Amino acid sequence: MSAETARRSVRILTWAGLATGVIGGLLIAFPKALAFGGPWVQLALGIATLVLAFRARKAGIAEVPDFDGRLSLLAALLGFAVVFFAGQVAFGILMSAGS
């Protein structure tokens, strides 16, 4: 893969990760936006954010000579926050359903 192709794929992965993270964060801030399956959608968006961010970082470190990974790092941190807060709500739902 050429450096320009790698740079383009890193850019796409990073911005897609940021977009999914922002959507997940907005759903956490406004939990009534989704009437059904809210925490599970948030959890899926957080996991997708993490996957996209770490794929961008891996490709950037390996194939882009002057890679600056601050945006993909921001996406990864956003993904961890979304998974943390959505995971708390999902865990609470599972515990209330079990008892």
Rank of each mutant, 00 (worst) to 15 (best):
I12T: 09
A3W: 11
L43N: 05
R57Y: 12
P65A: 12
G60Y: 11
I61L: 12
V82D: 08
G24H: 09
F91Q: 06
R8A: 15
D66H: 13
W15A: 05
L52P: 01
F54P: 00
P31D: 07
A35H: 12
A56S: 13
L78W: 08
L45Y: 05
L45W: 05
L50H: 02
G24M: 08
E63S: 11
W15G: 00
A59V: 14
S96D: 13
A81T: 13
G38K: 03
L50D: 02
L18K: 02
F91N: 02
V89T: 14
L27M: 06
W15N: 14
A53R: 06
V41L: 11
G69Y: 10
T5M: 15
A53H: 03
F80E: 05
A56V: 03
G46I: 02
P65E: 05
S96I: 07
V82I: 11
V83F: 13
L34M: 06
K32T: 10
R55E: 13
S72F: 01
A6G: 13
T14L: 06
R55C: 12
L18T: 01
A19I: 00
A81K: 08
A19S: 10
A33F: 10
R8H: 14
V64F: 04
G24A: 08
G92L: 13
A29I: 00
I23D: 01
S9R: 12
A62H: 08
K32H: 11
G24K: 09
G38C: 00
S96K: 15
A3Y: 12
L18W: 01
M95N: 05
A62V: 02
E63C: 06
V22H: 06
L45N: 02
I23Y: 07
G17F: 07
V41D: 00
F67N: 03
A29M: 10
G37Y: 07
L78I: 09
F84E: 03
G79L: 09
G69T: 05
L73A: 11
L34T: 00
K58D: 09
I28V: 15
V82W: 11
A29C: 01
L34Y: 03
L73R: 06
F85A: 09
A56K: 07
A35F: 09
L74W: 09
I23T: 10
M1S: 14
P31L: 08
F54Q: 07
L77H: 04
S2P: 14
M95C: 03
I93Q: 15
Q88A: 07
L73Q: 04
L45S: 06
L13I: 00
L71R: 11
A3S: 14
A97N: 13
G87Q: 04
T14K: 09
L26Y: 09
L13R: 13
T5P: 01
G21L: 06
A35C: 01
V83K: 11
V22D: 04
L71S: 09
A62W: 04
S99P: 10
A6N: 15
G79V: 04
W40H: 10
P39K: 03
G92Q: 12
